[in-house]
């Protein structure tokens, strides 16, 4: 509860601030001749971008929290299931085919394909006792590396230089020049995904005591896995469809949030969504303001923060203080 209030409050402060920040700083108390222009910048450029940052960050944060709870591992990341790489592969296919207008559809189809594959594998692995979870995670990793290889293949065989540069840029993730259209695609899917994850939340708590204890308490492992695949698939897939690959948010955010909660997976999902929204919103505002010739890609910026944090996390874990 404390964490929810904290991050909701933070978001309430960050959101208006991010609307003011950019190449053109907006004076909230200004008015006069530029007012119409200012309104246009706010409503058609900055607000949709900010809302999209909130949506993407929330999806990644919630999915990360759920994944760590499910795999009982603080190093788990929503990318582990291969959903984000498959969504990216779908998007890359749309560049390759020169059908960029339907990019989100292609990306969502990629995420959907990954989810279907995972569900198929889950149906075959989670029936027996033990081992199912490890096998399933490995299957997810295989899907991820297959998608990665196909993406690399698409890059090396790009039909022209324009498509190549588009693919590479897009893979790095960004929220530049996004409109309300992207918001309408991503927001409902992400919200639905977070909703599904919340349904699974209590079962994730039971997993704290191990797979067998959870099953003995009436948790159906197959149902839990399906909920997780659908929840992560929707919230991450929708994010990739509109913003490309944005790494590390799903990994880092639950760690920032965990000490502020009772550490149960169910207590982590909503505050992780809020904190993820804060992080992506802040990072996106920062890349907008940085005085560089071309805007730093959001995905790159977050990885630049994320990688050192991950190292620090590993060192802390070795010391056993996690």
């Amino acid at each position: 509860m404390r964490a929810n209030l904290l991050f909701a409050g933070l978001l309430a402060v960050l959101l208006p601030l991010s609307l003011l920040a950019g190449r053109v700083w907006i004076d909230p108390f200004g008015g006069g001749s530029g007012a119409a222009n200012t309104a246009l910048i706010l409503m058609e450029l900055r607000l949709p971008r900010a809302v999209l940052a909130v949506v993407v960050g929330a999806g990644l944060g919630a999915a990360g929290a759920a994944m760590q709870g499910y795999l009982r591992n603080p190093l788990a990341d929503p990318g582990l299931f291969g959903i984000a790489p498959m969504a990216a592969l779908g998007a890359v296919a749309s560049f390759w085919l020169g059908m960029t207008w339907s990019l989100p559809v292609f990306a969502l189809a990629g995420a959907g394909l990954a989810m279907a594959l995972l569900a198929l594998i889950a149906g075959r692995t989670s029936s027996g006792a033990g081992g199912g979870l490890a096998l399933f995670t490995l299957a997810g990793l295989m899907i991820a590396s297959l998608a990665g290889a196909l993406t690399a293949l698409a890059i090396t065989m790009a039909p022209n230089a324009f498509a190549l540069s588009q693919i590479v840029l897009w893979l790095n993730g960004a929220l530049t020049d996004r409109s309300w259209d992207e918001v309408w695609i991503a927001a409902p899917l992400t919200l639905a995904g977070i909703g599904v994850l919340l349904v699974a939340a209590r079962s994730l708590d039971a997993l704290t005591l191990g797979e067998e204890a959870a099953r003995s308490m009436g948790i159906d492992p197959r149902r839990l896995l399906f909920l997780l695949v659908v929840g992560v698939g929707l919230s991450v897939g929708a994010g990739v469809a509109v913003a490309g690959i944005i790494g590390f948010v799903g990994l880092i955010v639950p760690h920032l949030v965990r000490p502020l909660t009772n550490r149960m997976p169910s207590a982590l999902i909503v505050p992780s969504a809020l904190a993820g929204a804060c992080l992506v919103l802040t990072a996106d505002s920062a890349v907008r303001v940085l005085p560089l010739v071309t805007e730093l890609r959001l995905g790159i910026a977050l990885s630049l923060i994320g990688a050192p944090f991950f190292l620090w996390l590993l060192i802390r874990m070795r010391r056993g203080t996690l």
Partner: peptide, 26 residues
């Protein structure tokens, strides 16, 4: 049926009360 598996594996560093409260799950 309350089942207590072998070993004392608890994934997260939660408080005693939170662990005991999991017993209400069924």
């Amino acid at each position: 049926i309350g089942y207590l598996p072998q070993g004392a594996d608890i994934a997260w560093d939660v408080a005693v009360q939170s662990v005991v409260a999991l017993g209400r799950m069924p």
